[in-house]
């Protein structure tokens, strides 16, 4: 019961104090708009919105969740308010899940903003929304966990930002969004298959564009496994680094 009350309260506080702040909301709108516009100009008008959608959704989630969680946690650690959470009689797992939940919700909302825009411009009837929603949820969860892993290593907010870019950009190029996995150099391919985003992108490609490498269930399973691994790593490194 304590865990539930605390969980809800941490989630609510994070949403109110961080995620609902105007700069974060505007980011969710400006990013997909400008990306679409850029692609539109590049393609000289012959653009299929549907083709852009998986990439846009994946990027919105990835950018939204990794840095947000890393930055907010580093910020709370700096101001020592994070100690309050460590002093509360709730398990470390509950605490981590509550922190993740805020970022995941934020990421998912971000992911569906491009969908809302796309709905005005294209026919979205043939999309498997159940698969898309699960994929977006899992991409958000694994990206948030990655953000947390970054937060554990960062001391300053700017470090957290730098570290998250260090991971995000290579991930984007390795996950099959812009460069198909088949065209990646052979030595990079194993790396691509270690990234949860690769499987998430594959689900989105399958559900929206009807071309995927693996079955959706296999992709979900891989994301769950990688997510569990990340969660475990976060738990261990928090215990080691935050409880001095």
């Amino acid at each position: 019961m304590i865990a539930f009350t605390a969980f809800r309260s941490i989630l609510q506080k994070d949403v109110n104090t961080y995620y609902l702040k105007p700069p974060n909301i505007s980011w969710g709108i400006i990013f997909p708009l400008s990306w679409t516009l850029m692609q539109y100009i590049r393609s000289q008008g012959s653009l299929e919105i549907i083709e852009l959608l998986p990439g846009l959704m994946a990027m919105s989630v990835l950018f939204g969740t990794t840095s947000m969680l890393a930055v907010t946690i580093t910020f709370e650690r700096r101001s020592r308010s994070f100690d309050r959470l460590l002093l509360a009689p709730i398990s470390l797992s509950t605490l981590i899940l509550a922190k993740l939940a805020g970022a995941v919700v934020f990421g998912m909302v971000n992911a569906f903003i491009p969908v809302v825009f796309a709905a005005f411009l294209a026919e979205l009837g043939g999309i498997n929304w159940a698969a898309v929603t699960i994929a977006v949820f899992l991409i958000a969860a694994t990206s948030a966990l990655m953000g947390l892993l970054i937060a554990v290593s960062a001391r300053e907010v700017f470090e957290a930002q730098t570290f998250s870019n260090f991971f995000r950009f290579p991930m984007l190029f390795l996950c099959g969004l812009f460069i198909p996995l088949e065209s990646l150099p052979r030595f990079l391919r194993p790396l691509a298959f270690c990234l949860p985003l690769t499987y998430g992108t594959d689900v989105l490609n399958g559900a929206i564009g009807n071309h995927s490498l693996f079955t959706a269930n296999f992709n979900f399973l891989m994301m769950l496994l990688l997510g569990a691994l990340l969660f475990y790593l976060c738990l261990c490194s928090i215990k080691r680094k935050w409880i001095l």
Binding site: T5, T17, S79, D83, R84, I90
Partner: peptide, 29 residues
């Protein structure tokens, strides 16, 4: 209950909400 050497409540939140938040961490309704 712990009162640390630094005043580490949440800057953005008001006094009342800060207290309520702290209470919720201990399961208060």
């Amino acid at each position: 209950g712990v009162v640390p050497d630094e005043n580490n409540l949440y800057d953005e939140m008001n006094g009342f909400d800060n207290l309520c938040f702290c209470g919720s961490l201990y399961g208060m309704s």
